[in-house]
Simulated scan of single mutants.
Amino acid sequence: MSPYVLGFQDIDKTKIGVVGGKGANLGELSRIAGILVPDGFCISTIAFKRIIRETPSIHKLLDQLSLLKVDDRDKIREVSGEIRRIIEGIAIPEDIGGAIASSFDSIDQL
């Protein structure tokens, strides 16, 4: 696998910062005899951070969002919606997409 994708077999609780809590738990569960966890993988926070870093249009919106007060729900909804539209429109870099595709191929061969 790559730094962008980790198979469940490569994940344990020490990787929570790399794959998040659900991913770390799936990795831990896959190591326990008698518990069946389908083969799978997680996309790392390294991939996410790189994609966000390479998307300058999102940074201003994230800064705006961080300055809003919790009771300004309409503005939070508006800015969050803009952030979501940007994220949904991001093209995944070729090397990250290739790592994900290879991971799917590995699972299909099992």
Rank of each mutant, 00 (worst) to 15 (best):
I76M: 12
S80G: 15
C42F: 05
L29V: 07
I35T: 02
D72Y: 00
L29Y: 08
I86K: 02
F104G: 00
P56T: 14
R84Q: 14
L36N: 09
E88K: 02
I35A: 03
R53C: 15
I92D: 00
T55Y: 04
A99D: 11
I35V: 14
I43E: 01
L67A: 05
G7D: 06
I51A: 08
V18L: 15
F41P: 03
K69D: 13
V5W: 10
L68F: 01
L26A: 04
G81Y: 06
I76T: 04
A91I: 15
E82V: 07
S103F: 07
D74C: 00
Q9S: 14
E54K: 10
N25K: 02
L26F: 13
G7E: 05
I32Y: 01
I92N: 00
I11P: 13
G81A: 07
K13H: 11
L26W: 05
G20P: 05
R50Q: 15
R31W: 05
D72L: 00
L61H: 07
G97W: 04
G97C: 07
D12V: 14
F104Q: 01
S57P: 01
I76F: 13
V5I: 11
I46A: 06
R77D: 10
R73G: 08
I90T: 03
V5Y: 06
R77I: 02
V37D: 13
E94S: 09
P38L: 10
G20V: 07
V70N: 04
E88P: 00
L67K: 08
G98F: 03
I58Y: 02
V5C: 11
H59S: 12
P93V: 13
T55I: 12
V18W: 12
G34D: 02
D39I: 10
P93M: 14
I52K: 03
R53E: 15
V18G: 09
G21N: 08
I87F: 01
S66K: 03
I46T: 03
D39V: 08
N25W: 00
P56L: 12
R84T: 15
D10C: 10
S80W: 06
K75A: 09
S57L: 07
F48G: 01
R50H: 09
K13G: 12
G27F: 01
G27M: 00
K69Y: 00
R31Y: 04
A101T: 09
S57K: 06
L68P: 04
I16C: 11
L36K: 08
G40S: 05
R85G: 08
I52V: 12
I83P: 07
I11T: 13
D12T: 14
S30Y: 03
F8V: 05
E82R: 06
I87Q: 03
R84P: 00
P56V: 13
D39T: 13
I58R: 01
D39M: 12
E82Q: 11
K75V: 04
A47H: 03
S103Q: 06
G97M: 09
R53A: 15
L6N: 02
I35Q: 02
A24D: 09
K49W: 01
